[in-house]
Amino acid sequence: MLTFAVSRLLRAGLTILFVMTFAFVVLRLSGDPALLIMSVDAPPEAIAAFRKAWGLERPLWEQYLAYVGHATTGDFGKSMRDGRPAIELVMERVPATLAITLPALALKIGIGIPAGIYAALHRNTFADRLTMAVSVAGFTMPSFVLALVLVLIFAVTLGWLPASGADSPIHAILPIVTLGTAGAAIMARFTRSAMLEVLGQPYIRAASAKGVTWPRVVARHALPNAAIPTVTIIGFMIGSLVAGAVVVETVFAWPGVGRLLVSAVANRDLSVVQAILMVIAAWMVSANLAVDLAYGWLDPRVRGASAGGH
């Protein structure tokens, strides 16, 4: 178990390094950073001074090492817009993002998993079909469409809820519902297929054949085994919480990391984009790591199987 954890930890570190390298390479490929950040008509002396300040005339590998060194300490430079350290700007937005994504996650799990289990246990009934139909809609409807439809109904037509802003907890309702609905649909579909697969296994038939009551079969044999693949999807959802909030935060003018990313991209505020990229990568990798470890704990077979090399 220890070597398993260590190898996963190393992999996580490698992925982070990969993201850093990706950002570095893309940054360099995109042209001369001096010209990119300063305006084209800036005086040559100013550009030379900028290069010196950022060490742009040093060899590339030195720049890379310096970059990685800075990035690991959370130093991504200052935002072009207001001159504050980029990482600070990002971190102060994190609570707002969590304020809508965490309740949405609870919604996904709280609705999606029971719905999926129910649909699997009542396969081919009306309830099952309905669950699946709703979940297909959840798959194919983009979040901005769902968001706008909800705005149209609850803000414009009914006037019950505010359409955008972050002035009160009420404002969080529509973003949370938007994020939660789509996620719950995916969760339900996934849980259902995981349950169905487990219910089709010989050991389930064996258990019911030897006289174990059905509720007990479900509780003792089916649910724990279906939990294993479900943990993966939950982990993935936790990992992509921030990424998933990009569109929704923008629609509802919610002051989170996602909206910051969109405006940073629109303004080409590269330090902020890089800081967000690293924060999301670190978040994603930690979530994956947690899932891998949970997997190892839930399913002893995995400890070897997935780490045994290709």
């Binding site: 940054l27 990992g239 992509s240 990424a243 080409r268 590269l270 999301i280 990568a281």
Partner: peptide, 23 residues
Amino acid sequence: MAIDFQASMPFMIIALSVLAFFG
């Protein structure tokens, strides 16, 4: 490794950063 990387990062984020860098 590239496959793992691509699968572990939400593509929306990758796309946004590329757009930020390249216009």
